[in-house]
Amino acid sequence: MDAAAGPLVRARHDLARGRPDRALAALEQVTGAELESEEFWALRAAALFDAGDARAAVEAAQKGLVHDPADFALLDILALAQLASGRKKDARATIDSALLLYPDSAELQAHRALILARCAQRPFRLTSYRKARAAADEAVRLDPDSETALRVRAKIAAMSGDARAEVYAAELLERDPESEYAHVITGAARANRGNVRAGLEHFLEAARMDPSDPQLAWLGRRSRALQRWYAQPLLFLERVTHGHVRVGWVVIVLVTRSAHLALLNAAAIAFWIYMWVVHIHIRRSTGKAPS
């Protein structure tokens, strides 16, 4: 049987199945005029991005844009790859240019929201997700059925501690109960509101759905450790304080010290030691979060 598919077809096939390694191997076999096509560069940029090589993805996308400066897929992947490689300003400029060309694209608008949310996270400053939220809402308005738009809206809501996060996450889960991302966002939304126990169940479910993702596996492992008996008092206090156990602890220490309540003060300090011991133990047993 002769080979029916060219390497570009094979690469597209593998990319759709979450195998960027195979897609890159297929793209290595591309020769001749296909090397100059924007499809080749779009596939290469996407494969490199999925494989975690954001810098190389930026280069590939830029080379592709030389052939077609208005290519939707290339502009989108360039912006995301720039964001992943820490070039937030460039990412924002790219996505804004792309939106000038495709103003009605919910996907681009959702990715703009994601970029704005990441741009909002700056050290030593109060983080405001106002612009990111507005962009996410706009993405959903453009296409209420866009999975990307709905996911980004829920993610930003969870990141910013928005009370609507749980509603958005529930909506995602309802659409696709087997989506690991929906479970992660739901877990984050619930944990942020103090319901850590329920959040951990969702993280574990996400790990069960896709253990091949090292971050999800780590999250699952950490969730299991937090479900052990020694972490139960911590989970209980998170529930009572609606996820503000550390703030609560600081208040108690200050109050007991100023009121000269030595016993309570000692109990608060003992709890502080307990929190650290649990934290160190879990860190040692589950390792660092994979990058």
Binding site: M1, D2, A3, A4, A5, G6, V9, R10, H13
Partner: peptide, 12 residues
């Protein structure tokens, strides 16, 4: 897989 895949609908 290379022998099976085809870009045209239904050919694979």
């Amino acid at each position: 897989i290379e022998e099976i895949l085809d870009p045209y609908f239904g050919v694979s």
